[in-house]
Simulated assay, not measured.
Amino acid sequence: MYVVDTDPTRRTAGQYARETVRRLRMRTLVALGVLAVATALLGRAFGLHDARFLGSEVALLVSIFVISRIVLPLVERRDRGASGEEHVGALLDRLRGEQWEVIHDASLGRGNVDHILIGPGGVFTVETKSHPGPVRVGRVHGSTLSQAQAQRRAVERVTGVEVEPLIAYSRAWVDKPMARRKGVRVMPARMLPSYLARRPAKLSEAEVEQVHERITQALLAEQARNRAARLRTGS
């Protein structure tokens, strides 16, 4: 199925995560529906004591068990992640109109960057985490820090300017807000707007526009590559 592309700089916060949650829910409902209908048809066609009907009943019960133990917790985590990104996105959108450009849900070919900020204070990537906490900065997992650094490098390759990686916890208490670990600053989401607004000026208005344009072109190029891949596979 061909999907109409939209402006990649105008995606909403958490858009990919929210779409993933919807797909998981729909596929789960469809799978259960198919099994339930198949079980009913087998029972009607062959009788309630037929081995085929009993087998389909077992398959339905196993599916319900798997969904309750594996699929539903996964959907819940993805839903919590999407809500976290939406919450952080709403906070960051307050910076629009104050010489800041805000890009959400950016795909640069190597994973997804939750939020990119370009403004007088510089260029920032924000990785949103929705863990309920508490969070101790000294114990933030290495893979989380590596993810934030990978996002920084991806944006630096595109823009040619220094990028500061941030991790924002949408729900958690953070023991040392604004502390850095391995080059990544960690904070609760509520502190993001004030932190960014207080950064000393590094970029002029023209430079902000230039960096934003470079990111826009990179996002459009990645979108074109994805479109070509879909056309080749017919999806």
Score class of each variant (00 low, 15 high):
Val137Phe: 11
Gly47Ile: 11
Val4Asn: 12
Ser63Arg: 03
Ala206Lys: 05
Lys202His: 07
Gln149Leu: 15
Arg110Pro: 04
Val163Phe: 02
Leu192Val: 10
Arg152Gln: 13
Glu86Asn: 04
Leu196Tyr: 12
Val3Thr: 07
Arg23Phe: 14
Pro120Glu: 00
Asp175Ser: 13
Arg136Ala: 10
Tyr169Met: 04
Glu127Val: 05
Arg181Phe: 14
Val4Gly: 02
Gln147His: 06
Pro200His: 10
Ala206Gln: 08
Phe46Glu: 09
His141Thr: 08
Arg25Tyr: 03
Pro200Gln: 02
Arg153Tyr: 15
Ala17Gln: 09
Ala206Tyr: 01
Ile70Ala: 02
Glu209Phe: 11
Phe53Leu: 10
Leu72Thr: 08
Ile215Asp: 06
Leu220Thr: 04
Glu156Thr: 03
Ser146Lys: 12
Ala106Cys: 04
Ser68Asp: 02
Pro8Ala: 02
Leu192Cys: 07
Tyr2Gln: 11
Arg11Cys: 06
Ala45Arg: 13
Val102Gly: 11
Asp93Phe: 05
Pro132Gln: 09
Ala40His: 03
Ala197Phe: 11
Pro165Gly: 01
Val66Thr: 00
Val62Tyr: 03
His131Asp: 09
Arg25Gly: 10
Val174Cys: 04
Tyr169Glu: 05
Trp100Asn: 06
Leu35Thr: 06
Asp7Ser: 12
Thr28Ser: 07
Leu203Val: 10
Ile67Met: 08
Thr28Val: 02
Leu61Ala: 12
Glu162Thr: 15
Leu220Lys: 09
Val75Trp: 01
Gly33Thr: 00
Val4Asp: 00
Pro193Thr: 05
Arg225Asn: 11
Leu42Thr: 09
Val158Tyr: 02
Asp50Val: 12
Val174Thr: 07
Leu166Gly: 02
Gly43Pro: 01
His87Phe: 14
